[in-house]
Design a protein around this nucleic acid. Structure first.
Length: 607
RNA sequence: GGGCCCCUAGCUCAAUGGGCAGAGCAGGAGACUUUUAAUCUCUUGGUUGUGGGUUCGAGUCCCACGGGGCCUACCA
């Protein structure tokens, strides 16, 4: 394992360089046991990784390591039914961080991602031609791509996420449920589930109503109150009922899952159905023909067992009683003789500060959108620093500046090994991965605030921004040294900062104002323009701008200002802002001059 | 009906398997001819929603209550 992450700060605790087993030692002993050693920080990732190991090999494994050859599986799953947004990204990053933590401990691990592309297409989202309603009920992998750039609906939404994940340094093994089911990979499990459908029904039934309580007397009262519930109890009563059959085929004629199962023969495994869409009836053999899938609540636990999943997160909506994880957890040992993976439920990610919606289809921003304004490590950091259960918002508005500031100041803190705590640990998790190494970050760190505000006045030339930033005291060799931050600052300024907040340089001079200058004002401008060189240098320009009011009072450029001069400066600056950017204040004047160039300044200030 | 999260300084939030309650902004004082949110230094500000409990010790764990938010209700 090539570990790019700095080890523990204390030289003594760096760990035995040899023994592989001893190496796992970081778990149970109370931290900081020996006197004044700084203790190893712990966060949710550490704990989830411990749980994953425990699932794989018990408490024993945590202390002595897993048996040779045992690979820990961290899993994720997602349905490519629409743009994979920043909320869904948690599904990918949560197991990713856990897998990385395990790698860093030297544990063999894989991040397995299942694409639920064999799920049915549910509804036609806004913006897609209504004719796509025809495809409702078909697998996502069989629905054509309305934008015609990918092979299917599913692929259309997988592709951009894949690209974003590469940028984020997330490496995973992808599995397509369509391929798996169609290839019959799960057939054995499917048959097993069908055979034991009474167990499934029993478990699902437990969560159906609250009247599972043993007291029969009160049950009638409850039933009276919940009349709506009573109705559908009837047809499903029998264990052999087909209404809740755990397997559902896609219609052989029209490809939709809108089928009523009419018969199933446990001996032959022949399944007969009638499609309510096209009206055709068919018989499929579950053992030999692979035309359908398990229902979701059975499908998920089946995959845990099939893939040997040790850790998998789930959205909070999967964690509520009666929903998939709770049901699956109970189902999987009884049906597939497997213990449910260790699990964390993650909360939702919200968005804020967006005047404009993202360009990507649905409206909710995606990882790709976020990566246009956030450096990859920062996006990772947002997900690493919060416990999964904690909901948070990603803000595309003014908070972006604060976020960068916070990140930069964390970097300063991280430079001091004595301050290694959970926050620094979160940063370490964000900054590098085992397969991608250190993720892109600027060689020369310039505050995002500065980059964006210079981008604001220069209207978009990276070279010019680079020069000004250099002049202002952030020495660097080339534009490249400022990337990937500079480009993001430019994008942010032009796409997420409302026009009203931006600096708008006047197109043409304010002739009216220039015609009504006071005597002082006229003198100031004359002095300024008279001495303004064609090629501006920051220091000179600064001295000149501040010095003009001094000259006007017969002083030298470098003389210390008097109170009068200070008052004049204030008035002078106000005039300049008005004439240049039609505002009372604005970016620092010397910077603004540099950004505009002598010619432009001259044209706006000359009566 | 069930579940989860949250309530900490005026505001936005930290405090990540109990161990001296902390930042940023705002406020106050000072410095500064350099208005990128100017910057720098110093500083005020807390009975951690309420009431109990466990503990040597609770923002943190348990129970109840109040308030806010999210999810879910027999479908995949």
């Amino acid at each position: 394992m090539a570990t790019p992450v700095p080890g523990p700060p204390a030289h003594a605790s760096a760990g035995p360089p040899d023994a592989t087993a001893e190496h796992q030692e970081q778990f149970p002993m109370p931290r900081g046991g020996t006197a004044d050693q700084p203790s190893e920080p712990i966060d949710w990732v550490t704990r989830a990784a411990d749980d994953a190991i425990r699932h794989a090999g018990g408490q024993e494994a945590l202390v002595h390591g897993l048996p040779e050859g045992r690979v820990v599986t961290c899993a994720s799953g997602a349905s490519p039914s629409g743009p994979i947004h920043l909320g869904n990204l948690r599904e990918f990053l949560t197991p990713h961080f856990v897998a990385e933590e395990l790698r860093r401990r030297g544990v063999a691990v894989r991040h397995l991602h299942s694409w639920d592309d064999f799920d049915r297409f549910r509804k036609v989202p806004a913006g897609v031609d209504a004719s796509w309603a025809e495809h409702i009920g078909r697998p996502l992998s069989a629905v054509p791509d309305p934008w015609e750039c990918h092979g299917s609906w599913a692929e259309h939404f997988k592709a951009p996420l894949r690209e974003a994940l590469v940028e984020l340094g997330v490496e995973m093994v992808e599995v397509s449920q369509t391929e798996q089911y169609l290839a019959g990979a799960y057939t054995e499990q499917v048959l097993h589930a069908i055979t034991h459908r009474d167990v499934i029904e029993e478990v699902l039934g437990k969560f159906r109503t609250k009247k599972a309580e043993p007291a029969p007397g009160s049950e009638q009262e409850a039933a009276a109150l919940e009349d709506s519930v009573v109705e559908d109890d009837e047809p499903t009563a029998g264990a052999g009922s087909l209404a809740r059959f755990p397997y559902r085929p896609y219609c052989r004629t029209c490809g939709r899952d809108t089928v009523d199962i009419t018969a199933y023969d446990d001996e032959s495994t022949d399944l007969s159905y009638t499609c309510t869409s096209c009206g055709d009836s068919h018989t499929t053999n579950v053992a030999t023909q692979h035309e359908g899938k398990l229902v979701w609540k059975v499908d998920w636990p089946m995959r845990w067992a099939f893939e040997g999943v040790d850790f998998e997160p789930g959205g909070l909506d999967h964690s509520t009683p009666g929903s998939s994880y709770t049901v699956g957890k109970e189902l999987v040992p009884r049906l597939f003789d497997f213990r449910a993976p260790s699990y964390v439920a993650y909360a939702f990610v919200g968005f804020a500060g967006m005047q404009k919606m993202s360009s990507s289809a649905g409206g909710v921003p995606t990882a790709a959108d976020a990566l246009r304004i956030l450096e990859p490590p920062i996006l990772r950091w947002l997900y690493a620093r919060r416990q999964p259960k904690q909901a948070f918002d990603i803000d595309f508005g003014p908070e972006v500046v604060r976020l960068y500031d916070e990140w930069d100041s964390l970097a300063r803190k991280a430079a001091d090994p004595g301050k290694r705590d959970a926050q620094v640990l979160a940063r370490e998790r964000a900054v590098a991965t085992s397969s991608a190494g250190t993720l892109p970050s600027p060689k020369v760190v310039v505050p995002f605030r500065l980059l964006s505000s210079v981008a604001d006045v220069t209207a978009g030339s990276a070279e010019l921004i680079s020069r000004i930033v250099g002049d202002v005291g952030h020495a660097h060799d080339s534009v490249e040294d400022l990337e990937p931050r500079l480009g993001r600052a430019m994008t942010w300024m032009s796409e997420y900062v409302p026009a009203s907040e931006r600096t708008t340089v006047r197109e043409t001079k304010d002739a009216e104002r220039l015609a009504s200058l006071t005597e002082d004002e006229e003198l100031w401008l004359r002095q300024l323009l008279g001495r303004l060189p064609d090629r501006l240098e920051l220091e000179e320009t600064t001295a000149l701008i501040y010095g003009v009011p001094k000259l006007a009072r017969g002083m030298g450029l470098d003389d210390p200002p008097t109170d009068q001069v200070k008052a004049d400066q204030k008035a002078f600056f106000g005039l300049l802002y008005h004439l240049l950017v039609d505002a009372e204040r604005g970016p620092r004047l010397p910077t603004l001059f540099m950004a505009l160039g002598a010619e432009k300044v001259r044209s706006l200030l000359t009566p």
